[in-house]
Write a protein that binds this DNA or RNA. Structure first.
Lengths: 146, 146
DNA sequence: CAAATTAGTCAGAGACTCTGACCAATGTCA
DNA sequence: TGACATTGGTCAGAGTCTCTGACTAATTTG
């Protein structure tokens, strides 16, 4: 290789992202949550505390509502979510986190905190803060739901 | 929502990454390269200038060699890559970029440059530099091939 | 040289995602 | 109010992606 960092910013973003994701899945699997697939997790992550509609989940996870429905079906069978009728719209149902999801989420949050600490230890408090600050600002122009 | 940024660093990394990826695929598709799939692209990205072995592609893209082989087969048919015998090892073959891939890569590189400029315009030169600097440092502990 | 390793393929199955066609409830507006 | 468009969601079918397991051939190691 030649000079310092030849990588484009996309790859630079992706590398740590994937490292974190891998850690989360590995820890979750060890703890017995080996039945969540990455595809399911991408949807599960977006379920809000008061439940979220399928269509909204689909949009945010960037899949079709059919796909989202398919994944929610599986997660429902596996005990991660529940569907409850939406009181404000008889067509809709709210996807809500069930017990198993809350428990898994607790573990996942723990891993995230752990990894963030490792990163801060490596970068130093100042650069870690700058990183989060820049990424948060970037969100304004890259996150459609910001 | 409550305070400022409640999002964990993983999500923060993923959001801009996906925004960039979406832009690349959209532009590529407009330019007639609508036959590369995301899965293929993840492998294609890793092909070095002098060709790369299937096994190495598989490792870096984090898929099995069977999967990598399957994707390379398709890209070979579509004219994106070529397989040439590895002069140093009769078992192996080198996957090399073909004409169509070079052309697509040029477009993709253009989009990346464009998006990076937009980001810099939004963040300012200083914060963009800090961002890349922090990400590059992070690579030391998150990139197995660093 | 025999044994272990490494590069890659073949076969089959499961997981993921999409398009198209639908139904039911809601919203819009003349 | 009542037709029409929109929105939330499902069903059916097909194509894509990925994995596990088993196997061949070339290379490396002791």
């Amino acid at each position: 290789m030649a000079a310092e960092s030849e990588l484009n910013t996309g790859v630079l973003l992706f590398l740590p992202y994937r490292a974190l994701e891998n850690r989360i899945f590995a820890t979750l699997a060890e703890a017995g949550y080996d039945d969540v697939t990455p595809a399911q997790a991408r949807v599960l992550q977006r379920v809000g505390p008061d439940g979220t509609r399928l269509t909204e989940l689909a949009e945010q996870a960037q899949v079709t509502k059919q796909t989202a429905g398919f994944l929610v079906d599986q997660m429902e069978k596996a005990g991660y979510v529940r569907r409850t009728p939406d009181p404000t719209d008889k067509r809709a149902r709210l996807v809500c986190l069930a017990e198993r999801a809350w428990a898994a989420k607790e573990i996942a949050d723990g891993v995230v905190a752990e990894v963030e600490q490792e990163w801060e230890a490596h970068l130093g408090k100042r650069r870690m803060k700058q990183l989060r600050e820049a990424l948060t600002a970037l969100r304004e122009i890259t996150d459609p739901w910001a």
